[in-house]
C-alpha cells in the first residue's frame, strides 16, 4: 500500500477530548453519568488510513460522532480541517460518513436514496444521475438500484451506505465498523475499497474490532479501552519488537533442535516436519543461531526483524491497564475481545 504516501498535513485534531453522557435527570442532579471518552489526543494526517480499535463500548462511535458534530464534547477540542464540526456546515462537504448499520428511508429504492443525498449536496439533475450511476456501478449495486432499500441485505446496505458517503467525493471518509456483518467476500471487497480510497489520496478513518483487518489496512491506530487511550501511533512501530529477530528454520533434526531451542524463545514449532521458528536478540545471538543451524544441517528459511501481532500488543496493553485500573465486575475489557478474536 505504498501508492500515495501520507502527508504531514493534519486534517483531524483532538485535544483532551472527553465525552460524558448524562440524561436530563443526571444533568440536573449533577450526577457523574457515563464517561464514554476521556482525554483523547490525536492527529490524523491527510492520505492515511487511521483506525480506532477497542472492544464494544470503548468509545469508538462516540469519537466518530464528536468528529462529525452529531454530539458535543463535554470538554476538550475537536477540529476537522481546522474548523469546529459543530458549527461548520461547509466542512461536511469535504467529509463522508458511513454509519454503523446504516438506516435509511426504507421506502425509497437505492437510486432514489442516493438521489436524495445528492440533492442535499446541491448537485444538479445531470450531475446527480452521473454520480449515482457511477457509484452504483463501482459498488456493484446497479442491478439493485430499483429495489426498495427496506428489502436490502446487510451487505447491500453497507454498500449503499458507502455509496452515500462517497457521493460528494470527500477528502476524509469516516467508517464505523465497515465490515461488521459482512461475509468473507463482502469483507474483502470492503478492504479493497479502503485500499482504493487510500490510493486516490483520501484519508480513511475507521473504527473496528477486527484486529486482523486493522493490521492489513491501517497506517496508524489508536487503541481505546473504556474511553481511555492505551496506545497511539504508527502501526509498524507499535508492532515492532526492537532488538529482536525472528529466525525460521526447516529440516531441523532432533539433535539440532536440542542445541537450538535454548538459544531463543520458540515462536512456532512443528517437530514432525522439522520446522522451528525462534525469536532471538539481534547481533551476536542471531549470528550464533544461524551458524549453529548451518553446522547441524538445518535450512535457513527466514531472518527478519521481529513483529508482534496486534493481538499480542493488545494483551500487553491489557496487562498494563489492568495493573493501573483493575476491571470492575461486569466490565467488558479487552480480554474478552482477544478471546473472541482467537476463538
Amino acid at each position: 500500500m505504498a501508492e500515495a504516501p501520507p502527508s504531514n498535513e493534519v486534517v483531524i485534531r483532538t485535544e483532551n477530548l472527553s465525552k460524558t453522557y448524562r440524561n436530563g435527570a443526571e444533568q440536573l442532579l449533577r450526577m457523574p453519568g457515563v464517561t464514554a471518552l476521556s482525554n483523547l489526543n490525536m492527529e490524523v494526517h491527510r492520505g492515511e488510513v487511521f483506525a480506532l480499535i477497542g472492544p464494544n463500548g470503548s468509545g469508538k462511535t462516540t469519537t466518530l460522532k464528536l468528529l462529525m458534530g452529531l454530539i458535543f464534547p463535554t470538554s476538550g477540542e475537536v477540529e476537522v480541517f481546522g474548523s469546529d464540526p459543530r458549527t461548520s456546515v461547509d466542512v461536511k462537504r469535504r467529509i463522508g460518513f458511513m454509519p454503523d448499520g446504516p438506516y435509511f428511508y426504507g421506502h425509497l429504492n437505492g437510486y432514489e436514496l442516493l438521489e436524495f443525498y445528492a440533492n442535499l449536496l446541491g448537485m444538479d439533475r445531470a450531475a446527480t444521475k452521473q454520480r449515482v450511476m457511477e457509484l452504483l456501478e463501482k459498488l456493484e449495486m446497479t442491478t439493485r438500484a430499483k429495489q426498495r432499500v427496506r428489502t436490502y441485505s446487510k451487505g447491500m446496505l453497507q454498500r449503499i451506505g458507502l455509496a452515500h458517503a462517497l457521493l460528494q467525493n470527500p477528502e476524509i471518509i469516516f467508517m464505523d465498523e465497515p465490515t461488521s456483518g459482512l461475509d468473507p467476500v463482502g469483507t474483502a471487497d470492503m478492504h479493497q475499497m479502503v485500499r482504493q480510497m487510500k490510493s486516490e489520496g483520501k484519508t480513511v478513518f475507521l473504527c473496528s474490532h477486527f484486529l486482523t483487518e486493522i493490521e492489513d489496512l491501517c497506517d496508524r491506530v489508536i487503541l481505546l479501552d473504556r474511553g481511555r487511550t492505551l496506545q497511539y501511533g504508527d502501526l509498524n512501530s507499535l508492532l515492532a519488537e526492537p532488538g529482536k529477530m525472528r529466525v525460521r528454520l526447516s529440516a531441523v533434526s532432533a539433535a539440532a533442535r536440542a542445541r537450538l531451542l535454548p538459544m531463543g524463545r520458540p515462536l512456532a514449532e512443528d517437530q514432525a516436519q522439522g520446522n522451528l521458528e525462534l525469536v532471538v536478540a539481534d547481533g551476536t545471538d542471531t549470528h550464533n543461531t544461524i551458524s549453529t543451524a548451518n553446522e547441524l544441517g538445518a535450512h535457513l528459511d527466514l531472518v527478519a526483524p521481529m513483529r508482534r501481532t496486534l493481538e499480542e500488543v493488545f494483551m500487553e496493553s491489557i496487562a498494563r491497564q489492568q495493573a493501573d485500573a483493575p476491571w470492575q465486575d461486569g466490565d467488558r475489557g479487552l480480554a474478552h475481545l482477544v478471546e473472541r478474536e482467537e476463538g
Binding site: L70, F97, P99, Y103, F104, Y105, L120
Partner: peptide, 14 residues
Amino acid sequence: DRRIVMTVLTKPVS
C-alpha cells in the same frame, strides 16, 4: 430513532 438524522446532518445541511 431510525438514525436517519445522522446521515442527513453529516451532509452539508444545518
